[in-house]
């Protein structure tokens, strides 16, 4: 099995104390996405995508905002298949990022 490439992300060192909590919340989101897809709760999925879109870039993770935006749109369209793909994308992204804190 081919290991995905590592992704180096430079983050403002002012965010060092809160970023781990943010990443942990995204792991919780992944669990919630699975539950919501099982129950067909697209309202919850839309809210989750909306929040990821709004917060990701603020934490220095533009990719989270991008996935969040696509998830919000997919949830509006009740497209569970696309949401599953995006959840897999988010899982991979979270597994592959190497955070480098720097004074920006």
């Amino acid at each position: 099995m081919v290991e995905p490439d590592r992704i180096s992300v430079v983050i403002d060192q002012d965010l060092e104390s809160i970023l781990p909590g943010y990443l942990a919340n995204r792991q919780k989101d992944l669990l919630q996405i699975t539950k919501d897809l099982q129950t067909g709760d697209f309202v919850s999925l839309q809210t989750m995508g909306h929040r990821m879109k709004g917060s990701g870039t603020g934490y220095g993770l533009n990719e989270v905002s991008k996935i969040g935006q696509e998830m919000e749109e997919a949830a509006k369209a009740h497209d569970g298949e696309q949401i599953s793909k995006l959840a897999a994308e988010l899982t991979t992204y979270l597994q592959c990022i190497d955070i480098v804190y720097k004074e920006l």
Binding site: D14, L15, S17, I18, G21, Y22, N25, R51, G54, S55, G58, Y59
Partner: peptide, 15 residues
């Protein structure tokens, strides 16, 4: 209403 935004903004402004 998003706790992650509240944490981000409050922490950054406090710093």
């Amino acid at each position: 209403d998003d706790p992650d935004i509240c944490t981000l903004v409050s922490d950054f402004l406090e710093k």
